[in-house]
Design a protein around this nucleic acid. Structure first.
Lengths: 238, 238
DNA sequence: GGCTGTCAGCTTGTCTGACAAGCTAGTCTA
DNA sequence: TAGACTAGCTTGTCAGACAAGCTGACAGCC
């Protein structure tokens, strides 16, 4: 019996088109913002049916390389590197209901994010973070939380502003996704811990302002840990 | 002039199918290895044409969530597809920044992963990690690297085994995605640093065996930092 | 002039029916 | 019993049709 015979490579038509077009783009023949020939034209040039062309374009779109606009055309995407972000978002989303895993991943990412942010945050970043804290405060009327929706929105904005301060879009989208898939649970624990959160947030901001990575990380860690334990308790109840 | 008017959301049929199927998978109704209903059946269930179903399946395939086999059917895939790597290669070629963001995210995730693994790794996990290190060693003949392919595979296995030891599937898939997107690129720096890597790996394993979170984290941090600086240098050259 | 409605001609999105190519399992045959 | 064969499923590709949407030009109105 013959060994090491590799399976014959049967590349599908649409995969071949994907390769060719990707080659054109990476070779610079098609630059970001450029318009790709219409599907009909591509059919003629490649000598294939429209189905195959469409599947190829679809693949490149999913990868974030192309972007199609109905009635207008297909274009080479300007901001790329969206693909890895998307792929990682799916990683998180597909794991689904595993609350514990989400909480753990969040803890690890938020702490490191805060640490990086302490190093890199611009004055604008710090201002945006401070504004989010102020908005959280505004959801209160004295000690009572009167606008839970506003609180939630501002709290989310606070965390994302910190992520943005790292200047790393991967971190921003990752944290956004994780937070998004937890949002519903967080909403349930709001009344119980809203007041405490504000104090935590101020401590984190102080760490960032001091450009002190350790302080920022520790403050964020304490915040997430306390918030997570509330979440876990809540989850057990239900 | 009215501001803050958001564009109307016009979700396409196939995108909606993508969402629904991803939902099924994340809810656990479809597990890795399961077979998805045939295209014809899906047409009936969703009440749409085959074109739309096929585009949706294609999207999920590109994302590495499904895998289709002609004449046989479509299955929920166990591992990620190679598309991620391809897409990322282009990104890195055209945009050095993307690489920096990836390296940074990887550093953050790997260090924390090692730390968690030190706490939770079972004996089987440790054995798997040790086996991966041994395999890395086996790619050498004395001081010379004779099987770079084997080296790469074993190195990847080493890192994923540590991720698995955390018992957190989100971390496993996140690291898998990041590493996958860097794989082609890491391959280029292998000859230069293969020997050093083995020493690093042993130190990390020692930290895990000692159940010492700080030691494991520090060892991983040193490893990734040194490896990353090689990568960056390589990037600048091209 | 400047605004508005209309329409032709392009684009992408979807449906349908058809056939090719390939896998599986059961049946038939030597 | 071993191997060949075929029926019935699957995915891959093609072609043609229509719907939905954008653009630009052109006419008509104030």
């Amino acid at each position: 019996m013959l060994e090491n015979l590799k399976p014959v490579s049967r590349v599908s038509v649409s995969d071949e088109i994907v390769d060719q077009m990707a080659g054109l783009i990476s070779a610079g023949a098609l630059k970001p913002g450029d318009r790709v020939p219409s599907e009909k034209q591509l059919c003629v040039q490649f000598g294939v049916g429209r189905t195959s062309v469409r599947e190829a374009l679809r693949s490149l779109s999913v990868m974030g390389i192309l972007k199609t606009q109905r009635g207008e055309g297909t274009f080479v995407s300007a901001e790329r590197s969206r693909y890895v972000e998307k792929a990682m978002q799916w990683d998180v989303l597909l794991d689904g209901k595993a609350a514990g895993h989400l909480i753990e991943t969040r803890l690890m990412l938020e702490c490191e994010t805060a640490s990086f942010a302490a190093e890199r945050a611009s004055e604008e970043d710090l201002a945006a973070i401070a504004a989010a804290i102020a908005d959280v405060q505004n959801a209160f009327s004295g000690p009572a939380l009167v606008e839970p929706g506003r609180y939630l929105e501002a709290d989310l904005r606070f965390h994302l502003a910190i992520a943005r301060a790292t200047r790393n879009p991967i971190l921003v989208s990752l944290l956004g996704t994780i937070r998004g898939s937890m949002q519903a649970w967080i909403a349930k624990t709001v009344p119980a811990r809203a007041a405490k959160s504000i104090k935590d947030h101020r401590k984190i901001l102080a760490g960032l302002r001091a450009r002190n990575r350790e302080k920022a990380r520790a403050a964020m860690s304490a915040h997430i840990r306390s918030s997570s334990s509330d979440l876990r308790r809540r989850l057990k109840q239900t």
